[in-house]
Simulated scan of single mutants.
Amino acid sequence: MPMDWHYIIEVLPFYKTALWLTIKLAAIGIFFATMVGFICSTIQYFKVKILSKIVQVYLEIARNTPLLIQLFFLYFGLPKVGVMLSGEMCAIIGLTFLGGSYMAETFRAGMEAVSKSQVESGKALGLSSFQLVRYVIFPQAFSYSVPAYGANCIFLIKETSVFSGIAILELTNTTKNLMGIYYKTNEALFMLVVGYLMILLPFSLFLMWLERRVRYAEFGR
């Protein structure tokens, strides 16, 4: 059957709203996941007593439970004990909780790739742990982490599709609702694919550019 372009134009405002909501939730979730990942990776790298064990437990729980189950716990479970959260807040917390664990491993691997001799040189100069991270470890770890960090960001953006499980009208849930109302399956799925491409394709191109820039800054080529 030919594509019903009149229908696509008619439902375009719904997809526009869903697209911006998806971008907003993904951006906020990735931002906080990055912060959590950086803090956790720093604790692991310096092997901070007690805190490193807590971080390890967090990483195991976050990485070994599906995001949808985490969202169900936040959205349906917490109200049973009197904690009420909006769907968007649950989505951000869930994405941060899951994403932080992946970012932590990414940054930790980047930190450990930094030459030990440079770290020892920094200590010999009297730099504090914070100064070591700020001026010696993090700039180099960032360049090592860019490819994996970008892959994690793309993964988290794709994971926003499960937000439909807690009734958030992002791209996937909007598509499901429109399919149920109008039975225009091909058109709805086409718009869903276009919506995610509009987010992921420019972001992927930006990451490719950033990786080349970081590689050039590090190796001069």
Rank of each mutant, 00 (worst) to 15 (best):
S145E: 04
G94W: 06
I93E: 01
P79E: 02
R134N: 12
Y135E: 11
G110V: 03
L78I: 13
S145R: 04
S121G: 15
L74W: 02
Q118M: 10
A148C: 08
S145D: 03
C153P: 07
Q140H: 11
G100N: 02
M111R: 02
V146P: 08
K123M: 14
A151R: 11
Q118K: 09
G100I: 02
Y135A: 10
K123C: 12
L74N: 05
E112D: 13
I92Y: 07
Y75T: 08
V81I: 15
Y102N: 01
E105A: 07
G122W: 00
S115N: 15
Q70D: 08
L156G: 04
E120I: 11
F76L: 14
S128G: 10
L127I: 10
S121N: 13
K116V: 12
L74C: 07
V81R: 07
G150E: 09
A104S: 15
Y102S: 04
R134A: 13
G99Q: 02
V136W: 00
L85M: 12
G87A: 08
F155P: 09
G100P: 02
L95E: 08
G77Y: 09
A109D: 03
F76K: 07
P79K: 04
A124R: 07
A104V: 04
K80W: 08
N152M: 13
I92H: 05
L95D: 06
Y149L: 12
Q140I: 08
L156N: 00
L132W: 02
Q131T: 12
A141C: 07
E112N: 14
F142D: 00
R134H: 13
P139W: 04
Y75G: 03
K116W: 07
K80F: 11
S101H: 06
L95A: 12
F72G: 06
Q140A: 11
S143I: 15
L71I: 10
L132M: 14
R134D: 10
V136H: 00
S117V: 13
M111V: 05
L127V: 08
L71P: 06
I154V: 15
K123Y: 10
E120A: 13
M111H: 03
Y149D: 01
L132I: 04
G99H: 04
S86C: 12
I154C: 06
G110P: 01
I92F: 10
T106Y: 01
L71R: 02
Y144G: 09
L127Q: 07
P139R: 09
M103E: 06
S115L: 10
Q118L: 12
S121L: 09
S115Y: 06
F73K: 05
G126T: 02
T96C: 13
S115D: 15
I92C: 09
C153N: 12
V114Q: 00
G126D: 01
V83K: 11
G77Q: 11
G82Y: 03
F72N: 08
F97A: 05
L125C: 12
F130Y: 15
S121D: 09
P79Y: 04
Q70N: 11
G150T: 09
Y102A: 03
